[in-house]
Design a protein around this nucleic acid. Structure first.
Length: 508
RNA sequence: GGGCGUGUAGCUCAAUGGUAGAGCAGUGGCCUUUUAAGCCAUUGGUUCAGGGUUCGAGCCCCUGCACGCUCACCA
């Protein structure tokens, strides 16, 4: 039982709760008469004050007790709700000795309280609720980590705030309850997703939902999670992308579709990788990757403006300006500038490997040409891309779903958007030639058969869909978690995921 | 998976191999009407777990667990 593990401190709270109940006071009532948030009440009072109104501002507030200062004949307290904090004053001549004693006796930090009264300003200048009546809304049996605040010259100084990452992530409810900045991170994340939706909705996109459990996974290079459907006696994969399903919808004539949802990749974790992550993908008929670049910079900058009130963000010590236009850097040119190697002059893996060796550049000589170029990009280009930059024109053999650049069989119309040296999004002109697509799948299959860990199954139905005809289409994908990292300035993906995965433990 | 690091009271942190501590919170007291992280007193520990070395281990060694950073794979 829960209470078997209770400490002395927790048993004291438990006894208070039981005593209240024995006295006929319900410590967990079903409803409250709250009629304003703390911020609303303060605002209402300040408005009335500014208008020199003589009318009392009454309010019923509710929140978690964050500070209590009992002083004999009066008590001060602070309650906190989602919007902020407000001070409560309990006075003996308002409440009588007995009620005031009740407050001091029954209420602890962390309890939820309802207080009804009138707003006023103390001699110290703090807008405060003078309490006429109050009531327990929910007794807290466990003690929240201490984080007493001290306000010095208008600045809040935290004392002993909860910082232990394990506790913060395993018991996110405590982190949220105690650390306002954590609440702010998730407010920003939610607002960003909402702003992305309205941006796309405003462009006539249709939000759709496609299968998460898929018989054949595809649309990205990643190992999937496998699960099993008992009734069908069939293995299913948790999707690694939405791509192939969304493009089927373009074949179907929906023209502009997007999905925001979870992808699952059975890979390692890092500060920018989580096994499940939230992805935005959109597909737009009659657009190519140039159009998508413009939409991207427009979308990202306008969402930042809407959510943060600015297009300037701070990340990893950098000040980054998201305002369009973003820099455009052709991969071939970028690598030429950084390494002196013109990849267009080295058309096979062997040739490229030779020149890399000549230049003394570390590489895997057995890798395919595209992979080699990808490694070069990672090494020489990506770390430089602090300000928003579109890297464009990718090697064909690492882009199996993108359309060739006219007249250049080794290059495709694809770009990735980088911010703060981190890949934020990936987009291309979609390959809509069914026979070419089949060829690409087959090439992939071969590459993987030759020793790669990932095996990519052929999606016959997707090829059939393409064979019915897909209009020229631009497609786009962006990791929402990474976007949230940028907007909140966090350098770790777990900080922007409410319940990041942690290893299971029996210690509770 | 590899490397490095961390694990001490509810929280934040101390402690040459020699009596486990502080602040906050908790408990008790002070409180006489707009303040105070107030003041005084006080409770609280399987030092992550299990072995080992030692007269003696929070500290040294081994094993395990969890977490962090980092490398690899990937977005």
């Amino acid at each position: 039982m829960l209470q078997d593990d209770f400490s002395e401190l927790e048993n004291i709270r438990l006894e208070k709760m039981l005593r209240m109940r024995a006295e006929g006071i319900e410590p967990y009532p079903t409803s409250t008469k709250r009629n304003a948030s703390t911020a609303e009440a303060v605002r209402a009072f300040e408005t009335a004050e500014a208008a020199n109104s003589s009318e009392e501002v009454k309010a019923v507030l509710a929140g978690r007790l964050r500070a209590i200062r009992n002083m004999g004949k009066l008590s001060f307290a602070h309650i906190e709700d989602r919007d902020g904090k407000v001070q409560l004053l309990f006075r003996v001549d308002e409440l009588g000795e007995e009620l005031l004693q009740t407050f001091a006796r029954d209420f602890d930090l962390g309890d939820f309280i309802e207080a009804q009264g009138t707003m006023f300003r103390t001699r110290r200048g703090e807008v405060t609720l003078l309490v006429k009546s109050f009531r327990m809304l929910a007794k807290a049996l466990l003690q929240l980590p201490a984080d007493k605040d001290e306000v010095v010259d208008g600045k809040t100084i935290r004392h002993a705030a909860l910082t232990d990452p394990e506790t913060r992530f395993r018991q996110r409810y405590v982190d949220l309850a105690v650390n306002p900045e954590t609440r702010e991170v998730f407010r920003i994340r939610t607002a960003a997703v909402s702003a992305l939706r309205s941006f796309l909705d405003g462009m006539g996109f249709m939000e759709v939902e496609t299968p998460i459990l898929q018989p054949i996974y595809g649309g990205a290079a990643a190992r999937p999670f496998v699960t099993h459907h008992n009734e069908l006696d069939q293995d299913l994969y948790l999707r690694i992308s939405f791509e192939l399903y969304l493009k089927r919808l373009i074949v179907g004539g929906l023209e502009r579709v997007y999905e925001i949802g979870r992808d699952f990749r059975n890979e390692g974790v890092s500060y920018k990788h989580n096994p499940e992550f939230t992805q935005l993908e959109f597909y737009m008929a009659y657009a190519d990757y140039r159009d998508i670049m413009e939409i991207t910079e427009q979308m990202v900058s306008s969402v930042a403006q809407k959510v943060l009130g600015t297009q300037i963000i701070h990340f990893d010590g950098h000040e980054i300006n998201l305002a369009p236009p973003w820099k455009r850097l052709e991969i071939r040119q970028g690598l030429l500038d950084q390494t002196g190697i013109d990849i267009s002059q080295h058309k096979t893996a062997a040739e490229l490997s030779a020149v890399l060796r000549e230049k003394g550049i570390q590489h895997n000589p057995n890798a395919p040409r595209g992979k080699m170029i990808g490694d070069m990009m990672e090494q020489f280009l990506e770390p430089l891309l602090i300000q928003p930059t579109f890297l464009y024109d990718y090697p064909r053999d690492i882009s199996p779903l993108a359309k060739n650049k006219p007249g250049d069989p080794q290059t495709v119309e694809r770009f990735e958007g980088f911010v703060a040296g981190m890949e934020l999004c990936n987009a291309f002109t979609e390959l809509n030639d069914p026979l070419e697509q089949e060829k690409r799948f087959l090439e992939l299959g071969r590459a993987y058969a030759e020793g790669d860990e990932e095996r990519h199954p052929m999606d016959e139905d997707y090829l059939r869909a393409l064979a019915y005809g897909m209009p020229p289409t631009g497609g786009f994908g962006m990791g929402i978690d990474r976007f949230a990292m940028l907007l909140t300035g966090h350098h770790n993906i777990r900080e922007v995921i409410l319940f990041p995965p942690l290893r299971d433990t029996n210690q509770g």
